[in-house]
Amino acid sequence: MIEVKDIKKKFGRRQVLKGVSFTANEGEITCLIGINGVGKTTILNAIMALTPVNSGEILLDGKKVTKESFEKITFIPDAITMIPQMTIAESMEFMDDYYNAWNQKRADELLKFFKLKKEEKISSLSKGNTAKVNLLLGLALDVDYVLMDEPFSGIDIFSREQIADVFTSHLIEGRGVIITTHEISDIEHLIDKVVLLDEGVVLKEFNSEEVRESEGKSVVDVMREVYKA
């Protein structure tokens, strides 16, 4: 379980996170929702200790995040970080060299799953396929937790559907996933938990099936209520 406890973060005079708390369980998909600029990416960066927080703490399976524990998590940013001149195969080799947790078998499976060709250069890929390579490189690591920043943003509907299919496949099974998005409709049936953010605070944290069961509301219904209030 990833526990985010009352984290605060200032950039200059701007208080981006004003005490954010939530939990994300292993084997579940937790979705951080909020319009751009509410601090979603900052939260992911904080979990990865890429951005030091001013106060609060983040626990991974009950312990403070350390260098070793990072081997349990992977962070997939919203844009690919590989050099565009590299081919997909070369990017995969790079990951293999760099990470102990690289799982070649799973990488090959993901290639097939996304129908990508190894020989292609990253610079020649469509936006959708670039997003898929980006996900592939992160998901091929044997880790317990996967953080994804806006995996559905700015790509065509078919790529979105293909990426959504990953969430129901064995390629994710058992892992804890945190994804950020501002567009929920594609994945409403895929997620376990929703964390609604606004201006650096958590407005509501709920389980999507529970809210359907007890209140007969969709995730979007709850969002409408919370954000309009």
């Binding site: 084997g27 579940e28 959504a164 299919d165 129901t168 049936h189 895929l190 376990d192 099936e209």
Partner: peptide, 11 residues
């Protein structure tokens, strides 16, 4: 079934 129905495996 989760893959076919495109829903969360926990569901």
């Amino acid at each position: 079934l989760a893959s076919q129905l495109k829903i969360n495996p926990n569901t």
